[in-house]
Structures are given as structure tokens and as C-alpha cells.
Design a binder for these strands. Structure first.
Length: 912
RNA sequence: GCCCGGAUGGCGGAAUUGGUAGACGCGCUGGAUUCAAAAUCCAGUUCUGGCAACAGAGUGUGGGUUCGAUUCCCACUCCGGGUACCA
């Protein structure tokens, strides 16, 4: 019925303006959510087309999006990019017979809702609910095939009950270094000497091993936001990434997680993952593994030894001074009496300096001599000990041996303070011009070479003539043999600061008792809910707003012991660390999830999201997962098997010749050039991030209103490779919109659809298209898949006729990308059921077989003409054919070819 | 500084292990249709020269390997991301 109605409109030859407009509007509506689209969508939702069951008989596929923070501004065009990509894969996999888990939820704890609460008094839960509703509405308008029955929300007590539960697991786990594995604390062996000292000593010992611990921590404090920020939230210029104001140091009781215990596991685990190499590199850099040695230096005149960490034990012979960090425990005993004032003043100044000043490379190095010397273990020579803040207490042993000739930082320091620079590594011919300078101690050399001046009759050690690799090996075994040091590994990664002085986060299920005991709520007592508050503003001293909820904070146990609840809350990372697990069994109130279901669905097969989460979210999440794995709660070692980052969608912006940016509404285009609407000045088109000030922000709602959801989906996929950054262009949306209309006009018109045998050319291209679209989806190359669909559509339109079977296949191929149009065509062909679970078309390889190939014929590498030849032609026949060919005469110019290159199915090249 | 990624027509971008550079889309030009416009359809569109046939140049720059290089190697320029005294 429906199709006949449309065909009648199309077959009308009236040149009547209104009829045409009506046709156009109906067409547009068919492709927009105002018309047929929305009907389809509602039907899907009502019938729960995409409800996922735990059908263990089918192979599974878990396609996951990084869930959004539902901000008040709603969806931006970046969101649908990743969502559409996973949706295409999900729809394709369903048609390939997979049981697909494709869920969506909300990472809804976070600052903006709380800031809004501070300003207006509106409870963050209210704001959050409204924002989630808006996001859900917007996402549903995109026609994404989520199973909405699995929607989760990190702020839902039914969800964060389990976030708190995992925290209690972390608290009750220690890391067994021998087994390289997390284990329950009740399995922690307590040494006898600890036991002898009583309950408190045992408690301290255990607390010192827990993966989650409570301690004083120097933290960044943002005066503007009144919040503690993690190091990761502080930009390199010392500003808070959220508000941009300068942060300061503060010392507060904090929860920390011992993620460095898992450093090696987190590093090794990367090997087996199908992740972008760049993300793996970033994680590797973040973990920052380095190998070297710890070496003991006897301190002259003291019994203590000074232990240093170095990656270059081979350069011990070049050590001309030592440095200890200002916070080093031996500073006081090392410093000679007459130097005490000077050293104390330096330490005080260093403590007052912000980390930024301390780590500002441009500011040059500072330091002060302690007056004391250490004895170099390789040659017994005395080296002066300095205090300098370029050595950090938090890394290695907080002390170094300095080898200015072969370390750039030490070189800079030695030059500043006139300390000798002794070259012990001859760069050799590799650094011809530099070599003399290096040998004279005038230039620093960190590369390879041959050792000189690296022998001592006193100790018997010599590495002269060896290269760097052999030198390091030799010195380490010498040190170990003499008991002077040992090989050692260090990691840059630090403990994870896991608490925030905020209201809108998961409360810690923790009670601090007056006697110093800390207890964790029992599973039965979870979730610990947030109290209602009148006032959300945090205290100036760094108190969390929760401290004001005295009824909630103060508790008394059955013996009358008083205690108070932890008033910090967890950071936003907490909820996102494990959400992929809850989707598996989202409504389970008894357990975090059913282990059977977890075994079936894990790991995540495809995880798509922004590259901004390359390190933190993914590293934290992997850390939690590994702990859960060690405790036997999850069955896989890693959570995300394949990861992919979508590139950012940018926008065109305009700037004047002086580089001043001009808002888009002040720009007009004339003949491909851009001018300022008011001044008339010619402007340069550039690519920039979308921003309110540039007025170039695109709202997906607006795009859908005009072009429909299919066009938005298709355009975002057609723009370019998924992982690259690319600028939004309205004309590009029109392009794919035109394609959808063109396809609709052709494939929805019954007079174009015929019965019988398909045209040979069409059949061949159809099967090439099936092949291309399938493999492109598998490889996430959606732009070329869409291009293949366009090519096929162009041929179909040109031919004017298509068989019903071909039309059905086209609808199927199109449907992962443009599901509304796909379903529409499918129902026009008389199918009553959705095509979402129809089998994906098979490629008929026979149709792709060729008997001839049109060879490009080149002369000296330049293509001159084409020649169709049978595929089974013999090599020596080619030359005869070419020489005899009339087109070749001009290029051969009477000469015989020197050589004929023939690559079957590729090229013929004649060398003259 | 170090690590990673990128550079192809007027624009977004294609190009299997080295084998016809510019698929597809936008824009533009011409034509059909229309009283006219929009929409649609057809043709053309890397640059330079030429009416054309055709010729020459051409994938950020400079070298190299090869019968043949957008693709591989060396040196560099610019743009983007990450990181920053981690010994």
C-alpha cells in the first residue's frame, strides 16, 4: 500500500510546483525522525528489538562505548561519532549471527552538577536526572541499537553499592610480590617480630600492605573550586584543568591506592591487547619502567651508607659528586656543622617553592654543598655530597651519583657550580666533530662508545674498551659480587590519590573510630547513601561538604565506642573503572554480577572512545580488573581486548591576517573566499576546536531536524578515517543526505524493482560491494564502506532496473549505517519483521572471478596505454604482443626493449 | 628536550604485500528540465600549455634504493597529541 502511494507520487509528471514540493517534503520526512524514522524507532523500543538475552548457544560480541558524563549542554557531535561506529559493528555482528551486548549508561557523578548545586541549591541528583533524560532522548534519536534495559547510572545507589563493595575488596587485599598477585589480607603472613608488639603493631603492618590506605598526602588544592585535584588534573603550567586557576599545595588525610604494585602486570598485559600502539606507548611511558642498579656509597666519617639508584652503573668511574634530595632522611647527619645554616636555608627555600618552580627546566639548577664526602666504591675516591632540588625524594632512593660527562642534568649542574667533568666514555668516530669536546669534558655525551679512564688498581675493576651494554652488565655483576649494590627496577607511576573533598561522589564505606581503628562497612550495610544537605559548599580548610552532615557523620557502635564516617568521596574514575562489568548483569541485587554471565560476555571485544582517556581511565580500570581477577571475581586478565580511539570532530574557523579569530556568524563566503561581514577584510579559513566563542558548535539535534538521523550517522562515518581529527562541513552532510534520497528514490520505486536474473555487471558489483562493506566494517573503515555503497547505488540508478533480490541485499548492506532507511526499504519489500537479525549476505566468489585484466602498459615506469589481456597469458607472449601493438611503436621508436616487466594482474612495464 | 601521529586537487578524503595517483563526496563549470528559481538528471573538473589529439609537471622539502616509490631508507620542515629534572 505504502509503496504504491509513493510510486504514484513519483510517476506524476505534473509540472506543478506544489506537487513537487509535497514530494520533496514527504521524501525528507521519510528520512528524518519527524516522519517515518521516529515511527520505526518507537516500534523498536516498544518491541525491544535490541534486548539482549544470555543465549550461550551463540557466539558473543561485546561492543562498548565509553559512557558519557551527562552534561547540561547536551550531546555534541563528537558523541555520535564513536557511538555510531560501535552501532554499525553491533548491527553487522547481529546479522552475522552473534549475540551482541551493546549497552549505554551514564558516568553521572561529577563536578558540574555539584557546582550548580552550590550556586542554586538544586540537589545534584535532580540536575543529574534531567541531564540523563536529555542525553537519553538525544541518543535515542540517533537510532542506536542499545539494549536500554541494561542502562546503568553510576549515581544510582544500586550501582554504587558495588563500587563501594569493590573499594572494600581493594582495602582488604595485599599484593604478594613473590606470586605477583593480589591476595586477601587475611592470608597475609605476619612476621613474629610484629606479632610480639601487639594489636596496634599488627594493624599498622597490615595497613601498610593494603591496596587502599589512608595517609597524609601532599595534594594540589584549587582555591577556586575548593577541591583537591589529582596530579593528573593539574596542567603543566600549574593550573587546574577544570577552572584554569592556579593550584597550591596542601597536606590532607587522603585515601590512596597502591597501583604501582601492579606496575609490572599492567605493563606486561599490554602485549596481548589489540590497542592502538600510541595508547600502549602512553601507558608504558606513564608506568615508566627503568632498569639499573642500586649502589651503596660509604659516607666519609659516618657509619651510614648512602644508597643511590642509577640506570648507568657503568659510569661510576665518572662520578664527580653526589646529590641528595632536600627531603632525604640523611641530610641532617651528612651536613657538617659549619654548613648547617646554609643547607637549612636551602631546604627551607626548596620546601616553599612550588613543584612548578622546582621542576621548571628553564630556571636552571640550584644546590648547596654539605661539606661531606662519600667514597666511590669502584675506585675509593672521595666525591662531595650536595643537596639539590633537582633530585626528587619520590623516585629511586632520593639520592644520586652525578656523572656530569654523561648525564645532561648533572652536566648542567656541574657547569653551574664548577664541579669537575670527567669523560669516561669515548664516543668514537660516531661523533666526529663532538668527540674532542666530549673527551675534554666540555660536552655531555649520553650515547654509546668505548670506556676510557674506567679502571682501578685498588679495586681491580676495569671496563676500559667495553661498550655501554657490556659495561653496565660487568659493573652490576661486580657490585653484586662485592655486596656493594644490586640490579634494580624502578617505576615512575605513583600511588593513586583516591579521595575528593566533594559531595557528589560515592561515599567511602568507612568509619574512623576514636581508638584509631578503621572499619569497612559489611556488604549487608551497602550501599552507604549520601545524606541530604542544605549547603554544598566545601570548607576552606579542605573539609568535604559531607562534614556538615553531623547526623550522618557521627556514629556509635553497640559498645558505645564513638566514630565518624569518612567525609571524602571517591573520584569520578571510580564508577567508570568497572561499569563494563555491571552491564553484564545490571539488575542483580544479590551479587555484583552472575559469574556465569561474566564468563560468557567478557572480555569486551570492542571498546571505542576518545583518546583523552588513553592513560588514566584505561589504566585505572585495568588495575581494578586485575585485582578482581586475582581475587577470582572476574575470569579475564584484561578487560578490553580491542580498543579504538575516534578522532575529534573539529570545525572550520576564520582568522584575520593578524591571526585574530572571527566568530562564524561574522563571516560570509563569496566565490570560495571568506570575508568579514562588517569590515570586508578577507579571512583565512582554519580548522579549530568547536567553541562557543567562535560560534561554530554543531548541535546534533539541529542536524537531525534538518537531515534526519541517518544523514548524521552516515556523514560522521563518511568524513574520513574514524581515528583521525576532521573538520565538520555542512555541505558534507548534504552530500550524504543526497545519497540517501537518491537511494530511496530508486530502491523504493516499485517500477525499478523487477523479477528474474540479475544483470551481470550489477551482480558482479553487488558481490564486490558485499565483500568490501563486510571487510571494511571489520576493519572499522566506514568511510570507504559508505563510498562502496554509493558506487553501487550509482550503477543501479544508471541501469534503471534491479532485481528484488538485489534490492533486498542492498537494504541489508545499508542498514548498519542508515538503519532507518534500511528498515524502510525492507518493509517496502513486504517484509514484516525487522532486518536487524536477517543473515548478512554471502559473497558469491564465482561472480568475482575474472578471465581478463586490463593491463596498464608503462614505458620506463610511465603509464602510456591500456591493454586487455587474458589472465592465463604466458609471460613470453606478452613481449610479442606489446612489440606488435600499434600504440607501442611511438614509445619503442624502433628500438628493442631492454627488459619487459610483467606482474600478473598488476602491470606491464617496458624498459627501453 | 623526549615519545607518538600526520602532511595527497579549490575542500573532506581514496589508493591490496612497492605496480594505472586523485575512488567516493563537496564545490565549481557547462547542458537538460522550468516562465523562473529550488530540486532532479546528464557531461566535465590535479596543475601548466594546446581548439584538440597530446605533451610536460605532480602526493610537505632535499637526497637514495628500484624496471617502477604516496608506499621502503636517510636527512630535514611544518602541524597535532602526550610527557617533562624519574637519575
Amino acid at each position: 500500500m505504502e509503496s504504491r502511494c509513493y510510486s504514484q507520487i513519483f510517476n506524476l509528471t505534473l509540472n506543478n510546483f506544489t506537487i513537487k514540493v509535497v514530494t520533496w517534503i514527504i521524501n525528507s520526512m521519510k528520512l528524518s525522525p519527524n516522519g517515518k524514522n521516529i515511527g520505526k524507532k518507537i516500534k523498536h523500543l516498544k518491541h525491544k528489538t535490541f534486548k539482549t538475552t544470555d543465549d550461550y548457544s551463540k557466539p558473543k560480541y561485546y561492543a562498548l562505548d565509553m559512557f558519557p558524563y551527562p552534561s547540561g549542554t547536551g550531546l555534541h557531535v563528537g558523541h555520535p561519532e564513536g557511538y555510531t561506529a560501535t552501532d554499525i559493528v553491533s548491527r553487522y555482528k547481529r546479522m552475522k549471527g552473534f549475540n551482541v551486548l551493546h549497552p549505554m549508561g551514564w558516568d553521572a557523578f561529577g563536578l558540574p552538577a555539584e557546582q550548580y548545586a552550590i550556586q542554586t541549591g538544586t540537589h545534584p541528583a535532580v540536575t543529574t536526572r534531567e541531564n540523563c533524560d536529555n542525553f537519553r532522548r538525544q541518543i535515542k534519536a540517533l537510532g542506536l541499537s542499545y539494549d536500554w534495559d541494561r542502562e546503568i547510572n553510576t549515581t544510582d545507589p544500586k550501582y554504587f553499592k558495588w563500587t563501594q563493595w569493590i573499594f572494600s575488596k581493594l582495602y582488604n587485599t595485599w599484593f604478594d610480590k613473590e606470586l605477583e598477585k593480589g591476595r586477601p589480607v587475611d592470608e597475609l603472613p605476619i612476621p613474629d617480630e610484629i606479632k610480639e608488639n601487639g594489636v596496634k603493631a599488627i594493624r599498622d603492618y597490615v595497613d601498610g600492605k593494603r591496596l587502599a590506605y589512608y595517609d597524609n598526602a601532599q595534594v594540589w588544592w584549587c582555591n577556586h573550586c575548593k577541591i583537591v585535584c589529582s596530579n593528573e588534573e593539574v596542567l603543566t603550567d600549574g593550573n587546574h584543568e577544570k577552572c584554569g586557576s592556579q593550584v597550591v599545595r596542601k597536606n590532607l588525610k587522603q585515601w590512596l591506592l597502591r597501583i604501582p604494585h601492579y606496575a609490572e602486570r599492567l605493563l606486561e598485559g599490554l602485549d596481548g591487547l589489540d590497542w592502538p600502539a600510541g595508547v600502549k606507548d602512553m601507558q608504558k611511558n606513564w608506568i615508566g619502567k627503568s632498569t639499573g642498579a642500586e649502589v651503596d656509597f660509604q659516607i666519609d666519617g659516618l657509619t651510614e651508607k648512602l644508597r643511590v639508584y642509577t640506570t648507568r652503573p657503568d659510569t661510576l668511574f665518572g662520578a664527580t659528586y653526589m646529590v641528595i634530595a632536600p627531603e632525604h632522611e640523611l641530610v641532617d647527619s651528612i651536613t657538617l656543622e659549619e654548613r648547617k645554616d646554609e643547607v637549612k636555608a636551602y631546604i627551607k627555600a626548596a620546601a616553599l617553592k612550588s613543584d612548578l618552580d622546582r621542576t621548571d627546566l628553564a630556571k636552571g639548577k640550584t644546590g648547596v654543598f654539605t661539606g661531606r664526602y662519600a667514597i666511590n666504591p669502584v675506585n675509593g675516591e672521595k666525591v662531595p655530597i650536595w643537596v639539590a632540588d633537582y633530585v626528587l625524594m619520590g623516585y629511586g632512593t632520593g639520592a644520586i651519583m652525578a656523572v656530569p660527562a654523561h648525564d645532561t642534568r648533572d652536566f648542567e649542574f656541574a657547569e653551574t657550580f664548577g664541579i669537575p667533568i670527567i669523560c669516561i666514555l669515548d664516543p668514537g668516530d660516531a661523533a666526529h666533530e663532538e668527540r674532542d669536546l666530549v673527551l675534554a669534558g666540555k660536552k655531555c655525551w649520553t650515547g654509546d662508545g668505548k670506556y676510557v679512564n674506567s679502571a682501578s688498581a685498588k679495586t681491580g675493576l676495569s671496563i676500559n674498551g667495553l661498550n655501554k651494554q657490556a659495561g653496565i652488565k660487568t659493573v652490576i655483576s661486580w657490585l653484586e659480587e662485592k655486596g656493594l649494590g644490586n640490579a634494580s627496577v624502578n617505576y615512575k607511576m605513583r600511588d593513586w590519590l583516591f579521595s575528593r573533598q566533594r559531595y557528589w561522589g560515592e561515599p567511602f564505606p568507612v568509619i574512623h573510630w576514636e581508638d584509631g581503628e578503621v572499619s569497612i562497612l559489611d556488604e549487608k550495610e551497602l550501599p552507604l547513601q549520601l545524606p541530604e544537605l542544605e549547603e554544598y559548599t566545601p570548607g576552606d580548610s579542605g573539609d568535604s561538604p559531607l562534614a556538615n552532615a553531623t547526623d550522618w557523620v557521627n556514629v556509635v557502635d553497640k559498645n558505645g565506642r564513638k566514630g565518624h564516617r569518612e567525609t571524602n568521596t571517591m573520584p569520578q574514575w571510580a564508577g567508570s573503572c568497572w561499569y563494563y562489568l555491571r552491564y553484564i548483569d545490571p539488575t542483580n541485587d544479590e551479587r555484583i554480577f552472575d559469574p556465569e554471565k561474566e564468563k560468557y560476555w567478557m572480555p569486551v571485544d570492542l571498546y571505542i572512545g576518545g583518546a583523552e582517556h588513553a592513560v588514566l581511565h584505561l589504566l585505572y580500570s585495568r588495575f581494578w580488573h586485575k585485582v578482581l581477577f586475582d581475587l577470582g571475581i572476574v575470569s579475564t586478565n584484561e578487560p578490553y581486548q580491542k580498543l579504538f580511539n575516534q578522532g575529534m570532530i573539529l570545525a572550520f574557523a576564520y582568522e584575520t591576517s593578524t591571526g585574530a579569530k572571527v566568530a562564524s556568524d561574522l563571516v560570509e563566503e563569496k566565490e570560495g573566499k571568506f570575508f568579514h561581514r562588517e569590515t570586508g577584510e578577507e579571512l583565512k579559513q582554519i580548522v579549530a576546536k568547536m567553541s562557543k566563542s567562535l560560534k561554530n558548535v554543531i548541535n546534533p539535534d539541529d542536524v537531525i531536524k534538518v537531515y534526519g538521523a541517518d544523514s548524521l550517522r552516515l556523514y560522521e562515518m563518511f568524513m574520513g578515517p574514524l581515528d583521525e581529527r576532521k573538520p565538520w562541513a555542512e555541505t558534507g552532510v548534504k552530500g550524504v543526505f543526497n545519497f540517501l534520497n537518491r537511494a530511496y528514490r530508486f530502491f523504493a520505486n516499485p517500477t525499478n524493482i523487477v523479477e528474474g536474473e540479475e544483470d551481470k555487471e550489477v551482480a558482479k558489483l553487488l558481490h564486490q560491494t558485499i565483500k568490501k562493506v563486510g571487510s571494511d566494517i571489520e576493519n572499522l573503515k566506514f568511510n570507504t564502506a559508505i563510498s562502496a555503497l554509493m558506487v553501487f547505488n550509482n550503477l543501479a540508478v544508471r541501469k534503471g532496473k534491479i532485481t528484488r533480490q538485489t534490492a533486498g541485499i542492498f537494504a541489508k548492506l545499508l542498514s548498519p549505517f542508515a538503519p532507518h532507511l534500511g528498515e524502510e526499504l525492507w518493509s517496502l519489500y513486504g517484509k514484516s519483521k525487522t532486518l536487524a537479525y536477517e543473515p548478512w549476505p554471502e559473497v558469491d566468489e564465482n561472480l568475482l572471478q575474472e578471465s581478463t585484466f586490463e593491463y596498464p602498459v608503462s614505458f620506463n615506469g610511465k603509464m602510456r596505454f591500456k591493454l586487455e589481456l587474458p589472465l592465463d597469458i604466458a609471460r613470453d607472449e606478452i613481449e610479442k604482443i606489446i612489440i606488435a601493438h600499434e600504440n607501442a611503436q611511438k614509445w619503442l621508436d624502433g628500438k628493442a626493449p631492454k627488459k619487459v616487466i610483467f606482474v600478473p594482474k598488476k602491470i606491464i612495464n617496458i624498459v627501453i
